[in-house]
């Protein structure tokens, strides 16, 4: 190796990064180690969303069922009333001379 190449070697000698470089690298690896926490948070959020969707569905179904019950009772009463009227008409006729 000639003098010029020796000069290049000296110019390009290895240098150390700032103190605590390895610790900084390790610190940056930690988010990956804790990725399960994010997965847990995401899982919980998904569960909450699912519960929300289910509750909305349940509420709509409940409201629908309530309305259907009232409709069914109205029709039941209405038709019973029709029967009552028919009976009344018959009774009225039977009393006529």
């Amino acid at each position: 190796m000639n003098e010029f190449e020796e000069q290049l070697k000296q110019t390009l000698s290895r240098k150390q990064p700032a103190i605590g470089f390895a610790e900084k690298v390790l610190a940056r690896t930690h988010p990956r180690n804790h990725s399960w926490k994010w997965a847990l948070v995401a899982g919980l959020a998904a569960c909450l969303a699912a519960v929300g969707v289910y509750e909305t569905y349940r509420y709509q179904q409940g409201q629908f069922a309530k309305e259907q019950v009232m409709l069914a009772l109205r029709i039941t009463a209405d038709k019973t009333h029709v029967a009552q009227q028919k009976v009344d008409q018959l009774n009225h006729r039977s009393f006529l001379p």
């Binding site: 009772l73 029967a83 009227q85």
Partner: peptide
Amino acid sequence: GIIPKVGNVL
């Protein structure tokens, strides 16, 4: 008055 009057049929 919630539903029509049922009467005495039942």
